[in-house]
């Protein structure tokens, strides 16, 4: 089957198997390997991307379900050469060690901060509670998100999904 998906503002059109998982479509078909695959069962969140305006675990979403929709991955967080405050926060606060869970954590953090610009520690912990990090014990992830909350002004005009007009498409049929 054929699908057309806007990923990080770029339109992609591909012929896929109906059973293809979104995580494999993103990684193997599009070559965007920042999103990771960790558990198959929606428990670890290494595969979290945004589908339209919601974080989803792309290991349990079919690529076909993304047809006509917008996807945001870690590769889309950086804007005009400037890191998102969330990305800066993770680097500044040692919010990552091996880096495998990091993209999913940052995408959930971005979603949280867009809705709650000043989250408490507990709100941050609950927001990422569907995701696993094996390295950091979560402490510095929480600090990273708080850091981002406190440094948001520089990115106030951010528009993560607004570029999906096809103008940057590289292979639109």
């Amino acid at each position: 089957m054929q699908i057309a998906v806007s990923v990080n503002g770029t339109e992609y059109s591909r012929v896929i198997e109906p059973r293809l998982l979104l995580i494999h479509f993103i990684r193997d078909d599009l070559g965007l390997t920042g999103s990771h695959w960790g558990c198959d069962t929606s428990n670890c969140g290494a595969c979290v991307v945004w589908l339209d305006d919601l974080p989803v675990k792309s290991c349990t979403v079919l690529a076909a379900m993304a047809d006509g929709r917008r996807v945001l991955t870690v590769e889309g967080l950086e804007r005009r050469g400037e890191l998102d405050p969330v990305q800066q926060g993770f680097a500044h606060c040692h919010g990552l060690q091996c880096g495998f869970c990091t993209p999913g954590m940052m995408l959930t953090a971005r979603w949280l901060l867009d809705r709650n610009p000043d989250p408490s520690e507990q709100e941050i912990r609950e927001a990422i509670s569907g995701q696993i990090c094996r390295c950091t014990g979560y402490e510095n992830i929480v600090r990273s998100v708080r850091w981002a909350a406190e440094h948001e002004s520089a990115a106030a005009d951010r528009d993560h999904h607004g570029l999906g007009d096809g103008s940057e498409g590289d292979d639109l049929a």
Binding site: T33, S35, G99
Partner: peptide, 15 residues
């Protein structure tokens, strides 16, 4: 290391 990881530009085996 973080410069590549926060951009999703690490290179893991499956990449």
């Amino acid at each position: 290391e973080d410069a590549r990881f926060v951009r999703g530009r690490g290179t893991f085996v499956d990449d």
